[in-house]
């Protein structure tokens, strides 16, 4: 079927020839638009834990629309599992819409903070080089310690840990991932559809059926 061919050609962009996209685990980013409701975080989280799937990163924040919240959830799973999870999440009453994307389809960032002894860093490291090389900046400089901040992908924030470890890294913390979908035109139009009591005839709300083979779905 042509749907399956589409799927394969998409798979071939990122995976070795012939590998089944449905069967290979990789990182997926869920973007979930929801009402702001107490308990909804738990309702969504247990969809993963019930299936013994680890959430690698979870962020909740406001979205481009006032009163609507946006979850970013990262997991490492096969597309097949991810698709089923997306439908289970979207089934929740207070969830408006779920999207899932591979890392290639999103712009994403994580923020990290590093606390190191100021003495060490001043004496032994070339601070200026570090800051330039890792895109970091100093947030606080005190006599006893300095806090650096950097944002970027996982490997970038990880790399700075390695570098700072020899200088007596005191504390490290990294935020959850936030991600913007490259192909999305935002949620405003969609929300207007949802707010109609009766969907307009031109609204195709089960459009996911068209794109059963695509990454961007539902």
């Amino acid at each position: 079927m042509s749907k399956d061919q589409n799927k394969m050609s998409k798979a071939n962009k990122v995976l070795p020839q012939g590998e089944d996209l449905g069967g290979a685990k990789r990182e997926y980013n869920f973007t979930v638009y929801t009402e702001n409701q107490i308990g909804l975080l738990n309702r969504i989280a247990i969809i993963f834990s019930r299936r013994k799937i680890n959430i690698e990163s979870l962020n909740t924040s406001p979205s481009e629309i006032e009163s609507i919240h946006r979850f970013n959830i990262v997991i490492h799973e096969t597309e097949d599992v991810v698709r089923k999870l997306a439908r289970q999440i979207e089934k929740q009453v207070e969830v408006l819409k779920v999207y899932f994307n591979t890392n290639e389809d999103v712009i994403w960032q994580e923020l990290a903070l590093y606390k190191v002894p100021t003495d060490n860093i001043a004496e032994k490291a070339s601070v200026e080089r570090l800051l330039r090389q890792y895109g970091a900046r100093a947030v606080v400089i005190r006599k006893d310690y300095t806090v650096f901040e950097t944002t970027g992908h996982r490997e970038e924030t990880d790399a700075l840990i390695e570098v700072l470890q020899p200088f007596g890294l005191i504390e490290f913390v990294r935020s959850a991932r936030v991600a913007i979908i490259k192909g999305s035109s935002g949620f405003n139009v969609k929300l207007r559809e949802f707010e109609r009591t009766e969907p307009a005839p031109d609204v195709v709300e089960n459009e996911y059926l068209n794109k059963r083979g695509d990454i961007f779905t539902m």
Binding site: T34, E35, V93, L96, F194, V204, E205
Partner: peptide
């Protein structure tokens, strides 16, 4: 209640299917 914006109990039927 007859409408919750985040909840669509009855989808529009798709003719092609």
């Amino acid at each position: 209640c007859d409408h919750i914006r985040s909840y669509r109990p009855k989808p529009i039927v798709r003719k092609e299917y």
